[in-house]
Structure formats: C-alpha cells, structure tokens
Amino acid sequence: MPARALALLLVAVGLYAAGDAWWHMPLGTPGMPGPGMLPLALGLLVAFLAAASLLQRAPAPAVGFVRRRATAVAALLVLYPLLLPRAGFALTTALVLFLLGRAIAPVPPARLALFALASAAGAVILFRRLLAVPLPSGPWGF
C-alpha cells in the first residue's frame, strides 16, 4: 500500500511538472532548447515510470513498525522549524529534545529534562558562541 501511494504521488508530481512546463515555460526548438524542454521531458518520464511501477507487484509492507511513535517523531521534526523563529534556538531545542526523548522511550521525565537542558545549553555555547552561527533568538533573547 505505501508503495502504491508513493508511486501515485510521483505520477502526480511528474504530471504537474510536465503541465507547468508545457503551459508556462518556453520550450524552444531542438537546436536551441528553451527552459521548459527538459522539465517537460523529465516530468513525463517520472509520471510514466511511476505509473509503470504500479503494474509491478508491490514490495511486502515493512514489519516491526510503531505508527504512533513514527507520527510523534515526524510531528516534532515539523515543530522544530515552526517554533525556531518564534521561541528562539535555546528554548526550541530544549523542548523538542525533551519531547523527542519522551516519544522514543519511557525514560523518567526528570532525567530527560536534564538531558534536554544540558544539550540545549551545550549547543548554544558550541554553535552560537564558538562557531558564531547566527541562530534565531526568541523574545527573551536566547
């Protein structure tokens, strides 16, 4: 099932890319290819290959998979860039690291909080102070 869903997604992406190239990009001539020629060809190729793969037998679904844990980790990965410009690097890092730990394994919250705070503090010193990466600061200045 996931193989079919992904193949259909690739068909859609390919058709969209080909359609956009056909309608909105100059195609040029064979002697002077325009910016739309290669995207058109590639879009059609991706759609065709993905559609052809739908005719193949789908691989067996992966076993040993905890959907709830995967969803939680995925949501936290999205939360990080959402929160980063609003709450700042230190707070976002501490919060997301704590929640990631909670999502991955049942560890005592106090130990996890200590790990998250220490990691965030270490990251601020390493990346912001020593390596001078201009990471976003939150409303509280850290």
């Binding site: 990080y80 860039p81 980063l84 730990g101 991955i104 990691s119 990251a123 990466v133």
Partner: peptide, 24 residues
Amino acid sequence: ADVYLLPLIVLFTMVGAYSVGNSL
C-alpha cells in the same frame, strides 16, 4: 541509548541545515 542519541542527531541536522545559508 537511542533515546539520547537520536535527539542529539536531530539537533545536529537542524543546526547543520540552518547554517548552510543561515536560512529556515
């Protein structure tokens, strides 16, 4: 344990990607 290792790798990837162009 993965419970410590994986969040740390996430942290490094986030900072690493950000520092490519200092852009979200």
